[in-house]
Design a protein around this nucleic acid. Structure first.
Lengths: 186, 186
DNA sequence: TTGAAATGCTACACTGTGTTGATTATAATG
DNA sequence: CATTATAATCAACACAGTGTAGCATTTCAA
């Protein structure tokens, strides 16, 4: 962790992050130039390069911050259930996501680059696949990527459409399709 | 459909497509300059602009061609089973994908931009969700994106790792996790 | 063989990049 | 408040990729 006591630095970085999230609502990260980003944030381009290498570096910083918030958000939970992800945990995440819909709409959309999906996969507090020890290692890996991308895609659509359903509705939907499969909806 | 009888045009476009697929094995489409692409393809930059607007235009053309091949590949199938996607259909796709592993590794990887996933979603021959008419429209949409992205992510991993498993193994895995959920693997 | 079309070649203005050094503005400290 | 440290701004720079244009050259199809 870095110490950023200086108000100027915090303000600059905040402006840059907000600007990137805004721009990423409409266009892909690769199409966002450092120049346009700085103009939107009203920050000098030299200042940008003093803090980040490029847009992707800034985006990664935003993703990191979001992931830290989520993990911290989940730090005090109980692991009583013997399932990869519980309703309680999932719904708590969704509440946080919905509260920061703009941010996650940018991070999870096609405009992001989908790096964050792999980060989510690595958070053991969310998905616990150790209970599938009877399966081979590769099968577990396949199940993991299937589960996380499937869930994230539902969140993507949910966010793109303006989170019309409640977090509980989405949580139930995700858990049912994940555990029981799509045929359980017949 | 356009007619491209001239050998020169076909050769040029083939070289460009091959070059882009090659470059996309290692770097994101946004990082591939038209200049580098043309150098790799040994095609003049002016010639490139005579056919395509930019890298993305060329990529879209490649995706289109691949989708056309898949749909044509599936044109003569029987719809006897009452399920969204049958083993027969899925396995036939996987055979085609495995035969063109390099191409689909590029198209389906993070280096692509994941446009093709939405194209796949629109092919009614692959996923038939009409049998879920008892469900609400939004639920069906959620199930569809969940199914397609989950399946594609498995294919991505399969391709990245060099398609070590047989097409039948992957087909079985996909259908089981899709229909019965991950808990069926306990 | 010949006309048509595709490709190659060169040059051009334009834009964004990443860096540098000097200057201004502002935060932190005693 | 005054001093010091440092962050942000500004102007300028070389560099690279873009998209376009005109003209020369090569290749194809008839």
């Amino acid at each position: 962790m870095e110490k950023k006591l200086d108000r100027r630095v915090k303000y600059t970085i905040m402006m840059l992050k907000d600007a990137l999230v805004e721009l990423m609502q409409k266009e892909h990260i690769s199409k966002i130039s450092v120049k346009a980003l700085c103009e939107r944030a009203d920050v000098n381009r030299s200042t940008f390069y003093a803090h980040f290498e490029d847009q992707y570096d800034l985006l990664h910083s935003i993703e990191q911050e979001a992931m830290d918030n989520i993990t911290h958000y989940l730090s005090r939970q109980d692991y009583t259930d013997n399932i990869p992800v519980s309703f309680q945990v999932l719904n708590r995440i969704l509440v946080y996501v919905k509260e920061n819909a703009g941010l996650f709409r940018a991070l999870l959309s096609d405009n992001g680059g989908s790096n964050i999906q792999k980060d989510i996969l690595k958070v053991p507090e969310i998905f616990d696949f150790q209970i599938y020890n009877s399966q081979g290692e590769r099968t577990k890996e396949y199940l993991a990527v299937f589960a996380i991308t499937g869930c994230v895609s539902i969140l993507q659509k949910w966010l793109e459409d303006g989170t019309p359903e409640s977090t509980e509705t989405i949580s139930d939907l995700v858990l049912q399709v994940l555990y029981k499969g799509i045929t359980s909806f017949r």
